[in-house]
Simulated scan of single mutants.
Amino acid sequence: MIDSHCHLDLLASKVDLHTSLETAKAAGLTRIMAPSINPRSWEALQALSEQHSSLLPIDTALGLHPYFLTDSNQDNTASTTDLPEQAIDENLGQLEAAAATLHPSVKAVGETGIDGHISVPLTLQKKVLHAHLKLADTKALPVILHHRKSHHLLLEAFKQAKYQGVGVVHAFSGSVEAAKAYIERGFYLGIGGTITYERARKTRDTLKYLLENHFDKILLETDAPDMPMYGRQGAPNEPQYLSDVVDVIHELFAISPKQIISITTQNYLRLFETA
């Protein structure tokens, strides 16, 4: 199994990371993609990749998450004054510099995207996303996208940026129509803990369509330490629980765990061109 979206630096602040990774490996995990959220995150993840390389391969990505463009927006109280244009431009400059001398672990650009739930101005989120898409095209790297109430805005951004690359829409929970729109552009869709909840009927219906028509476009993910699996609420999510996602797909759609793991592993390696 490969966890295509796990915030290892955030997880490390909640659990003993080495123990967590050992447990995940024992549970069948073979690789992790660790997207970043800000410049401090890039350095932390690259160090973790080196530190734990003998245990598990850890790929990383360079990005500025829309949710963390300011320190105050975690409680949805960010205002325009919290977002000086100069500071954002400096971060984007750091992103360009980091991409100029890529750390060996970097396999993608992200996490970036558009979030319709936070008060960070959409104009700023679009500007930052546009910069990421341009960088991904320039470096020929896939992009890792965050979405909340923003599928139409992301698809619009691809056109505006004339984005020619591919990537993954992580924690996908959209309709069949939204899924088709991304797949037509060559994107993959990340499937995680949402499907372990019975109330996620729309996402499960979309997943059924994807399994029947586009199994080659599905990745597995935890989004650890967030998005806990059903029955594990109240504790940090961990990469070892990726098997919960596999188990639910098996139970709902009668696909063998071996096939689920084999196909999604091939999908991951194809997208990120790693082995």
Results as ranks from 00 to 15, higher is better:
Ile2Leu: 13
His5Val: 08
His5Gln: 01
Leu17Glu: 01
His18Trp: 00
Thr19Cys: 00
Ala24Phe: 02
Arg31Ala: 07
Met33Cys: 05
Pro35Asn: 06
Ser36Leu: 09
Ile37Glu: 00
Ile37Leu: 13
Trp42Ile: 14
Gln46Tyr: 11
Ala47Lys: 06
Ala47Cys: 12
Glu50Lys: 09
His52Trp: 11
Leu56Ser: 03
Ala61Phe: 07
Pro66Ser: 04
Thr70Gly: 00
Gln74Gly: 13
Thr80Trp: 13
Glu85Ala: 15
Gln86Tyr: 14
Gln86Lys: 15
Ile88Arg: 05
Glu96Arg: 14
Ala97Val: 15
Ala99Met: 13
Ala100Met: 13
Leu102Thr: 03
Pro104Met: 14
Pro104Val: 07
Glu111Ala: 02
Thr112Tyr: 07
Ile114His: 04
Ile114Phe: 10
Asp115Lys: 02
Gly116Arg: 01
Ile118Leu: 13
Ile118Arg: 01
Pro121Trp: 04
Pro121Leu: 09
Thr123Gly: 12
His132Leu: 08
Lys134Tyr: 11
Leu135Gln: 07
Lys139Glu: 14
Lys139Asn: 07
Val143Ala: 03
Ile144Val: 15
His146Trp: 13
Arg148Ser: 04
His151Ser: 05
His152Val: 12
Leu153Trp: 12
Leu153Phe: 14
Leu155Cys: 07
Ala157Asn: 06
Ala157Tyr: 10
Phe158His: 05
Gln160Trp: 08
Gln160Phe: 13
Ala161Leu: 08
Val166Cys: 13
Val168Gln: 05
Gly174Cys: 03
Val176Lys: 10
Ala179Met: 12
Lys180His: 09
Ala181Pro: 03
Tyr182Ile: 05
Ile183Gly: 03
Glu184His: 06
Gly186Asn: 06
Gly186Arg: 07
Ile195Thr: 05
Glu198Ile: 12
Arg201Thr: 15
Lys208Asp: 07
Leu211Ala: 04
Glu212His: 08
His214Arg: 07
Phe215Glu: 02
Phe215Gln: 04
Asp216Gly: 06
Lys217Thr: 01
Lys217Met: 09
Asp223Glu: 05
Asp223Trp: 03
Asp226Ile: 09
Pro228Arg: 00
Met229Cys: 09
Arg232Met: 11
Gly234Asp: 02
Gly234Glu: 00
Ala235His: 11
Ala235Val: 14
Asn237Cys: 06
Tyr241Lys: 02
Val248Gln: 04
His250Ile: 05
Glu251Phe: 09
Glu251Leu: 11
Phe253Cys: 06
Phe253Arg: 03
Ser256Cys: 05
Ile261Arg: 02
Ser262Leu: 11
Ile263Asn: 03
Thr265Ala: 05
Asn267Glu: 05
